[in-house]
Simulated scan of single mutants.
Amino acid sequence: MNNFTVYSITDNEFDETFGFTSEEVQEMLSYYGLSSHYEEVKEWYDGYRFGNADVYCPWDVVNYCKDHRENQNAAPKNYWMNTSGNDIINHFIDNISDNGMLTKDVLERLVNGEVITQRVDEMVTYKDLYSNIDNLWSTLFMTGYLTQRGYIGNGYYSLAVPNREIRNIIIERILALFRKEVSGNGELLRSFCNAILSADAEAVERLLIEYMGKTISVRDNFARSLHENFYHGLMIGILGFRRDWEILSNRESGDGFSDILIKTKGQESRVGIVIELKYSKNEKSLDKDCQDALQQIEDRNYGQELCNQGYQKILKYGIAFYHKKCCVKVAMQSTND
């Protein structure tokens, strides 16, 4: 056994054996009565390029079928998260800087479906994983966080994030880093929460735009829900500064689920806050989408839970986002009216 040949994910030999082909996935979904789920599975778990073959992650597809045998309406999951530690992607995100070799611009391009060109060394060893940025790109490629979209030559590949699952994992890590960074800026966070409580929509909008400048922008390449989840995570991270507030996410109230419900404590306990978020298709739509968010709060009676619990004043916020811009509107309800 001392003479053997290594076939890597860039070799053409046996390239289809490293994952499931599109035909195999369609056959598996058909077997479990899930043929109508093909586009969802493709969006979440396809996108890998091994040699000359396009393949799906087999672990993901198998687990998706297992979860959907009993409940066909189950939401897709990030199964990748449970397969190993995320030290590699954590190290990758932690090395972002505004003027270094790994910039927010590069990360933003990857998350938004663009392709970047990087050198890949398939022989990198564990002890050298983090020794330089080239080794880090190689590790991300070899471990499946990135995949190839073509060989340039001289060891350089066009690299991209393969699918929505990996994109979600990266975005979750970005949001965690963002929360860590902004938590150190107590004055700005305090000003934001005070503006929320004071129904100062202009200040809330200005401070939100300032905060968004510190993180990446999720653009229009992907599903609307991805954008809304991203901005939802941003808001939860900022509002978390107020440890004395009870912040409820996607809370059932009235005739549906509000994005964010806030129950204040102490001296502010007579004020409840409802926030509905929208993602706009362009900058011109911000004002209308913001107004639609406010109207949705009214139409679906999202403030009912706060009324039932005795809050005397309820602030209703509609917030619309587009890239790193936003629009904020607020309406006030007195339960004594």
Score class of each variant (00 low, 15 high):
Phe192Ile: 02
Phe4Asn: 10
Met28Phe: 12
Glu283Ser: 13
Leu29Asp: 08
Lys281Arg: 15
Phe14Tyr: 08
Lys263Asn: 11
Tyr126His: 15
Lys325Asp: 09
Glu305Ala: 10
Arg119Lys: 11
Glu40Leu: 11
Thr103Asp: 07
Ile93Asp: 11
Gly272Asp: 01
Glu205Val: 04
Ile247Pro: 01
Glu27Gly: 07
Glu40Gly: 00
Pro76Val: 08
Asn90Trp: 07
Asp54Lys: 07
Val161Pro: 00
Tyr38Val: 00
Ile319His: 00
Leu306Pro: 04
Glu23Lys: 05
Lys325Gly: 01
Thr147Val: 06
Thr335Phe: 02
Thr143Phe: 12
Asn250Ala: 01
Asn73Glu: 14
Asp220Tyr: 06
Phe20Trp: 06
Val62Ile: 11
Met142Leu: 15
Glu205Ser: 04
Lys214Pro: 07
His91Arg: 14
Arg149Phe: 08
Gly303Tyr: 09
Tyr48Ser: 02
Ile247Thr: 05
Asp87Val: 10
Ser198Asp: 05
Phe50Trp: 10
Glu114Val: 07
Arg69Lys: 09
Asn168Glu: 13
Tyr126Pro: 13
Val271Leu: 08
Ala176Leu: 11
Met235His: 10
Phe50Gly: 09
Val41Met: 06
Tyr31Asn: 04
Gly19Phe: 03
Asp259Arg: 01
Thr147Cys: 08
Trp80Thr: 14
Lys324Asp: 10
Arg173Asn: 12
Leu129Asn: 12
Ile314Tyr: 02
Arg190Lys: 08
Cys327Pro: 02
Tyr64Val: 06
Asp200Tyr: 03
Thr264Gln: 01
Ala203Tyr: 04
Gly150Thr: 03
Gly153Ser: 04
Leu207His: 05
Phe178Trp: 15
Val61Ser: 03
Glu24His: 04
Asp15Leu: 01
Lys288Asp: 15
Tyr56Lys: 01
Ile319Gly: 00
Gly233Asp: 03
Lys284His: 14
Asp11Pro: 02
Arg243Leu: 13
Ile9Cys: 12
Asp94Tyr: 11
Ser131Val: 08
Asp87Arg: 06
Asn52Phe: 09
Asn71Ser: 12
Gly184Cys: 10
Gln118Ala: 08
Lys288Ser: 11
Val204Gly: 00
Asp244Leu: 03
Cys327Thr: 04
Leu277Ser: 00
Arg190Leu: 06
Trp137Pro: 05
Asn194His: 03
Asn229Gln: 09
Gln312Ser: 05
Val182Phe: 12
Gln312Glu: 06
Gly51Phe: 00
Gly256Pro: 00
Ser35Ala: 11
Gln295Leu: 11
Glu114Gln: 14
Ile314Cys: 00
Trp59Ile: 14
Ser35Met: 12
Lys324Pro: 03
Asp292Tyr: 14
Arg167Trp: 10
Tyr151Gln: 11
Val62Met: 12
Gly184Asp: 15
Pro76Asp: 03
Tyr7His: 06
Ala320Glu: 01
Leu29Ile: 10
Thr147Ile: 10
Glu172Asp: 15
Trp245Cys: 13
Gly310Ser: 02
Lys66Cys: 05
Leu175His: 09
Tyr38Leu: 00
Tyr302Asp: 12
Asn86Glu: 06
Gly19His: 02
His232Ala: 13
Cys290Asp: 04
Tyr156Gln: 07
Pro76Asn: 00
